[in-house]
Design a protein around this nucleic acid. Sequence first.
RNA 1: GGUCGUGUGGUGUAGAGGCCGAACACGCUGCCCUGUCAAGGCAGAGAUCGCCGGUUCGAAUCCGGUCACGACCGCCA
Length: 587
Amino acid sequence: MLKDTNCGELRREHDGRTVTLAGWVHRRRDHGGLIFIDLRDTTGLVQCVIDPSRGDAYAVADQARAEWVLQIEGQVALRPPETVNPRLVTGEVEVRVARAQVLNDAKIPPFHITDAGEEVEELLRLRYRYLDLRRDSLHDTIRLRHRIVKFMRDFLCERDFIEVETPILIKSTPEGARDYIVPSRLQPGYFYALPQSPQILKQLLMVAGFERYFQIARCFRDEDTRADRQPEFSQLDIEMSFVRREDVMALVEDLYTAIARECAPGKRLLASPFPRLTYQEAMERYGSDRPDLRFGLELRDVTDVVAQSEFGVFRSAVAAGGRVKALVAPGCAGYSRSQVDELTRVAQSGGAKGLATLAVSAEGVRSPVAKFLSDAEVRGIVEHSQAKHGDLVLLVADRPEVVAKALGGLRVWLGERLDLADSQVLAFCWIYEFPLLEWREEERRWDATHNPFSGFYAEDEPLLESDPGKVRALQYDLVCNGSELGGGSIRNHRREMQERLFGLMGYSPDDARQRFGALLDALEHGAPPHGGIATGIERLLMVLRGTDNIRDVVAFPKTQSGGDPMLGSPAPVDERQLRDLHLRVVE
RNA sequence: GGUCGUGUGGUGUAGAGGCCGAACACGCUGCCCUGUCAAGGCAGAGAUCGCCGGUUCGAAUCCGGUCACGACCGCCA
């Protein structure tokens, strides 16, 4: 080794020890005589002092510049008391340099490699990702990612799970997300697809009798990115045989509780065991199936209060089977016209046609719609919404889904604007009892709300014929701080039932065989009852690191247009390669 | 497919039709300096304002297009 000690690990008990370090010049301070070099390696940094009396070492320190790679030999010494730096973990000591050697020089960095202050344009950071990753915060995130993944592996191995790798080149099964496809050289005109998830393969492993499987699985979805979505990402994929919903949930809850304790010591769990909300309840109370439980701001139903109102917007919405719900913005009664307009835009982006507001104060209620409402109605709204003096009541009237989406969006927006969420808190919760199916009006068919292999409550079976939208799936989502960390279900392990569901989803028996033949066949060969879950690695890291940008938790992320500015991907390929693959680029 | 935002020395910003032959901070180069830690002092180099076109006597600034990056809607079983 070119080093025998890590920079960031030196402490006062190492006083007097002779060490060899190797790392990067983090900062150099030249006093004309003395030169200080903060030498950085993956563990942190330590101050090295070079005295002019050390001729060769001094010459090295004299010419060294930021990000040069040096090997330094010297003696650890306690700093003079008045020069101790309490902001550095290594600040009580320094290394008195005896010898120094340049292992490599470095160009002037294209941007400041530091977490202090300014944000560098992200494109530049991505082009030089290997430099950006040197920053403490990113470096630490990638190391945390490793610790979490290792923790998951250790945790599951201890509980008799085995990790199985499943193929990356599989078969395209249209529906769901768009597949990335890979042309076959040996079979002209045929294509592989990259997995959107190993769903079918892990179910087949259950049929194969492994009983407890997991994988840190790479998944690929050719859809537009978002702040929390990349074209490729990782999931902790789990599947278990002979389990009930409770077993899977308990396992995952134990795992995530332990991760929070071991890997995020600064964070506090809001509640343990994790609260459980039915989908119905989550939508009613929070207007979302992934509620941020770090703050209240629950939605209140005032439909009954205004059902007979003179106010046409409310009355007609109710008459059409819709609802009127309220959200209280605490302390916002004084909002200006433009601030209320902003709230309205948020509501509209959630699909609402408009937003009615009531400002509650000691003097009474001010509202642009007051003239349409009776005193009793105004009183009823204030009472039902539990608004206090100084609060602003926000009302949306529409179909229940629209009301939920609009007010749910406003709730999240207000949570941010009013800084209601404690960033040190992890509010895990489970959402369960999702509807199994939803009606797709454009395609005139039922479709799985989550996953077409989900089982459902046995007692709901008659509803499959009479009212499919009411069938409750054995599906559960793990949610934390308003982010969907993952979801899973108990699967259908009998062919007849799975085929029946495919039928409801509009697949002919032929279609179903075409797409899911291997799984359907396998279900006939003694498939055990089974279920599992898949949770996003990046989503978890985002929550733990408190970032809203997925690129912060991926070593080499892609841009919004799916490219990598460092590698220059995607890129054209040689004519020769295309020929081998029986492809021609048109246009 | 759509909506919105951003693009000025190496980096981050300022600039709102003539005051811009583009300012500031950091960085960089040179000189000075033996206890700093975002070291300090002095001097200096460095950008025609993403790209193309238009309006105007005159454009970094206004307009159109385009490219890149980002946020969002659609999409993400």
